[in-house]
Design a protein around this nucleic acid. Structure first.
Lengths: 341, 341
DNA sequence: TTTTTATACTAAAACGTTTTAGTATGTTTG
DNA sequence: CAAACATACTAAAACGTTTTAGTATAAAAA
């Protein structure tokens, strides 16, 4: 019933040679180790014949490398992250790495739990979208010489690899685009967060409105309330209190979703009268009516940047030696919702 | 710089006892193996003090269990699958299992590649949304005594665990709902596929229309064309050729997306005049205008069913001994798009 | 008193690899 | 003709666990 998988030993025994020789051949070291052409061929042929697959667990134990990466994000069911995961998956598999995706809900406790669960050493590297309070944890990973890349946001004062986008510029450009389309009272709906990505988005908006002598009209919803599903109430109240708003810029995709829901319930016509931009694109935006303008992150470039930074890191003796901070540009996808009405 | 992690041996040496004893204690076998209370406490305390974490790779090598599950789906960036992944993730971690998610694009070659990549034996179990032609591969996994659960679809004539929904009933109910809302010419847009889930959806639709003396108006788009991004052209042509359609039922979420896009481009008013139902829900559907009625799969129940079937399987000597076929009910979420106009 | 049973602990093998440090033979070189 | 080198291969340790099959002593039963 359960036939045992073939091992290197079976090959050695069958061919009456040592496991060492078999191992050398299978690892492509035949030349270097002076294994004769004939024997090399014999081993290779036989291995193929019996469909030999190395036991990766044994390899891992011996080499200390698991060929597994952990990709920890906020929430894999979020359109932005799932799209990114899909692309990264292919790139990683291509390089022979498996990926364990997990979601930390931007929660510190969950992040730490997950990181300890992966047991530090049994994983070759981490890609982490960090929750606000895990700077120390990250620092410890680096001290333990474990490859880490921060994604989407980073920590001021921590010298760590990171791949992020230019949030401030993206937000500035989007706001400016609204201004150029004659919108005067532009609301900015964001989270009450001091994480770098949100700070950048806020300051980009602030810069654009103040440079154009408009006033900043901002709603910052506490994270705890968002998790309780209260964002819609906050947005509704914000709209009520600012009846003169003629445009809204949502700082995240889930806020945009809540916002659109509020519009629909509150006053279906509003959606065609008010300017709208969302940070992060969504497949559905282009078929919405009006089609929603959005800030699109370069998913392919992010993924390749991650792998480009990760691969050399995996080979290095000392991961803290040199770090890479990569900042990528976004693209504003202009659709109907942000054009002069 | 790279401090070596502590091993069971370090504990043994420090306390001047054998590794066996330490292992017994750490595995909670102190009682059973007659280790004294005092020594047990000493070991536990010291292990905690030095923050001992077992090397899971070594454990895996010895026990043959990796505590890793593979969850292979069509495409993790698809809203349905990413939502499911998010829920399953929590359930699995709760039980001490890590999950490797991967996407097969419903392609046989990719499926087989991935399955061999995971190397059969180095993973405790598979949850697979199978592409059409991998029945043999699945059969071989079962012969090799590897736990497998098929998800979303299954193979006729293959005795394998599965968790699916009642597609025929779901489709029948949805179609009937359109009929009850006075729609007479209901188009069904689906993939040209003989996979069980699509066959079920088609036959549910067929049954409903024929029972009500309506004619079936069906578009079946070949998979290859969908992958080439041609679905929109097919749908457009279908709409042109069937100008009398007053409702459309999309058999998958990506077809619904393409369909809505076609509506928007072709004739924005159409969307308010025609009845629409989509198979699989999407966060954006409820904020669409009109809000889109959809067939909602019970994601929580699916995930728990998967784990409920998987856990005993992981303990069993012979996975083929008894198999479970679970079929769950869907829910029709009625929104504006399917109500009498 | 001898035999059995219970308690407390351990040596060593095993899991399947990789890698270090060899050996044995033949071929050049000085 | 010995020393150096090249070729072809291997024994055994190591990675960090779990587990089998013990040993040694003390207490209970015969």
């Amino acid at each position: 019933m359960k036939k045992k998988p073939v091992s290197i030993r079976n090959i050695a025994d069958e061919l009456k040679i040592s496991v060492t020789t078999v191992s050398f051949v299978l690892n492509g070291k035949a030349k270097e180790k002076h294994i004769s052409k004939e024997l090399t061929k014999k081993v290779l042929d036989y291995a193929k014949l019996i469909n030999y697959r190395p036991n990766q667990i044994a390899q891992s134990l011996r080499t200390g490398k698991s060929k597994i990466l952990v990709f920890m994000m906020e929430d894999i069911s979020n359109n932005f992250f799932s799209k990114l995961a899909r692309i990264f998956e292919d790139i990683a598999y291509d390089k022979g790495y498996k990926v364990i995706f997990c979601s930390n809900e931007n929660d510190d406790e969950k992040s730490n739990e997950l990181i300890t669960l992966f047991n530090f050493r049994q994983v070759d590297g981490f890609i982490i979208v960090p929750s606000p309070g895990i700077k120390d944890t990250i620092e410890n990973l680096i001290k333990d010489n474990i490859p880490v890349i921060l994604l989407d946001r980073f920590f001021e004062g921590l010298d760590c690899n990171s791949v992020v986008i230019d949030n401030e510029q993206a937000s500035f450009d989007a706001t400016l685009h609204l201004i150029q389309n004659k919108f005067k009272n532009i609301g900015f709906i964001t989270t009450a967060s001091d994480q770098t990505q949100m700070m950048g988005r806020l300051s980009g908006y602030d810069k654009a409105v103040s440079q154009n002598n408009l006033k900043a009209i901002t709603l910052q919803i506490p994270y705890s309330e968002i998790n309780k599903g209260k964002s819609k109430e906050y947005i509704k109240e914000f709209l009520d209190q600012n009846p003169d708003l003629d445009a809204v810029f949502f700082a995240t995709n889930y806020l945009a979703q809540s916002g659109l829901e509020v519009f629909k319930v509150k006053n279906p016509k509003l959606i065609n009268e008010i300017g709208i931009i969302a940070f992060d694109d969504n497949d559905m935006f282009k078929i919405y009516d009006p089609a929603i303008t959005s800030v699109h992150q370069p998913l392919n470039e992010i993924s390749t940047a991650l792998m480009d930074v990760m691969l050399p890191l995996l080979k290095k003796k000392d991961v803290a030696e040199t770090t890479h901070q990569i900042m990528l540009k976004t693209e504003l996808i202009v659709r109907e919702s942000s054009l002069s009405k």
